[in-house]
Design a protein around this nucleic acid. Structure first.
Lengths: 150, 150
DNA sequence: TTAGGAACTTCAAGTACTTGAAGTCAAAGG
DNA sequence: CCTTTGACTTCAAGTACTTGAAGTTCCTAA
């Protein structure tokens, strides 16, 4: 590393704002070892986040956003510090994430169709169109049947 | 109510898929009284969700999705009953839910791209392709920013 | 310099699910 | 008919925060 002399330091509140994680979660992640211990102010004992700390927290925030569990994040971050030797495990972890995201996407499409159907249904009920409401109810049933086959 | 003779019934798995709430959450909500007790199969004891039950669960799912606490949902459902009289309010909530699902879908696509990029990155590292790893690392950073702002 | 308030600290308890264990039930294949 | 497979059941324990209490420190302004 080169010119780190001008390393700015941030309070927990600033770090929270910059990474999008609540301050309470930052403390929690540190307490269980998902992120490394943050240095403290000499007199205050308050946490002081450096640029490097912020990078790490942002990385963890990304993993959390993809739905990775805390224990997996812990392992992933630990491996990231080890280096290229952990590439295989990184890939395995990420492949698993990808599979889960694909499943999620399929579920999401189904849900979008169901909600759209329900909106039409309540419009029909509101308009007193009993026949159309019944029809749309049937379509919801078809959607459920499709689900059984999938 | 009129032609409710053709009322279709759904398993907890189907109800979960259609409403977007996990089966475990459906049971949990029922156990704490957020949703009414669901009728059971005569011999099996398994829950059987009717169309009306599904409407109620969908309603509760909408409330939950907007961040309402469980205790508030309980009070809300207990006081203001759910029915055709509330069609307009149902539609409003479902429209909001549709918007959120659209956002979720967009977010999901970004996450898929992010994870795919990270997989490529680690493959590059594993293959010792420094240049490609560096390139992909930069791309991931751009995408991470997009992910956070979305 | 001293008072007040905002922001920080730890620790314990609460919330809202989520998962695992152990067992029941029902349709499909031999 | 019997076994296997898979979805369901309850209940207890675990997870991932989140909130609240009680106390300390920082900052501003009189």
């Amino acid at each position: 590393m080169s010119a780190r002399t001008t390393q700015h330091e941030y309070t927990i509140k600033e770090a929270a704002a910059l990474t999008g994680l609540p301050a309470s979660t930052l403390r929690y992640y540190e307490s269980i070892g998902v992120i490394a211990p943050i240095s403290r102010g000499a007199s205050s004992g308050h946490r002081l986040y450096g640029e490097d700390d912020l990078d790490q927290v942002m990385w963890v925030a990304c993993l959390a956003a993809t739905g990775m569990s805390v224990s997996d994040m812990k392992r992933y971050v630990a491996n990231g510090q080890v280096g290229p030797s952990a590439a295989r495990e990184q890939i395995e972890l990420l492949e698993e994430r990808r599979r889960r995201l694909t499943d999620e996407a399929q579920q999401l499409v189904l849900r979008q169709r169901y909600v759209a159907l329900k909106i039409d249904y309540w419009h029909a009920v509101d308009a007193g169109d009993e026949a159309r409401a019944e029809l749309l109810s049937g379509e919801a049933r078809v959607l459920a049947d499709e689900l059984r086959r999938a």
